[in-house]
Amino acid sequence: MGQLSARPDVPRPKEFKGTRVAKDMDNFIWSMETYFRATGVEDKAVRVGMVSMYLVDVALLWLRWRCDDRSGKTVNTREEFKAEFRQQFYLEYAEDEAHAKLRRLEHKGELREYVRQST
């Protein structure tokens, strides 16, 4: 008898719509990189191309606009993509937003709920 493949079913990442919430953007990038590692996708150009399949709404419009840019500056590596992606969708005041959220955080009720709110 031959050996069965031990490769597990890898869930696909969720689509990114282009929200300007730092947590959503960071989670999207992390889930894509985790997906690539789990599926064995190592080619950087393929990775950049595959990310576009998980962008919808505003994020897809941004990428289409970016690809139609006639400047000749192409995005070939995931580092270049991540830098431009963050520049486009990461709020300039994300740090201030996080500090404000922490200042408003109050411990009421169970500790579990307090921890859930702080993440």
Rank of each mutant, 00 (worst) to 15 (best):
Y54N: 00
E42K: 13
A100L: 10
S52T: 15
L4Y: 08
V21F: 08
M25H: 05
R78P: 06
K23Y: 13
L105K: 10
L61N: 15
K23T: 03
D26K: 06
D26F: 13
S31F: 09
W62E: 06
A38Q: 12
H99I: 12
R104F: 04
K101L: 03
L105Y: 05
G109V: 02
E106Y: 03
D9C: 12
M32P: 00
R103A: 07
G40H: 06
V48P: 03
D68M: 14
V51A: 08
N76W: 07
A100T: 03
G72V: 00
K101A: 13
L60G: 01
R64P: 01
A94E: 10
R12P: 04
G72I: 01
S31Q: 12
E80H: 02
S118I: 00
E80V: 02
T39I: 07
W30E: 12
H107W: 14
V75F: 02
R7C: 09
E113M: 05
S52A: 15
F36Y: 07
H99A: 13
R12H: 09
N27G: 12
R66H: 06
K73Q: 09
C67A: 14
E15R: 12
A83I: 11
R7T: 14
R78F: 15
D9P: 12
K108A: 01
K17S: 12
C67W: 13
G72F: 02
G49V: 02
R103T: 00
P11W: 02
G2W: 14
L111G: 04
T19A: 11
D69G: 03
N76A: 13
F89C: 06
L60F: 04
K17V: 05
F16C: 02
V115D: 06
A38D: 14
V56F: 03
E106S: 04
R112T: 14
R103S: 04
L102P: 08
V21T: 09
V75W: 01
R86L: 11
R47F: 04
S31P: 07
S31E: 13
Q3M: 15
R70Q: 07
M50E: 09
T74N: 11
V21W: 05
K17R: 11
A45I: 06
T39V: 11
E80T: 00
L55W: 00
F81D: 00
R112Y: 11
P8G: 12
T74H: 11
P8H: 09
Y54G: 03
R104A: 10
K82C: 08
D26W: 10
R47P: 08
T19C: 09
K44R: 12
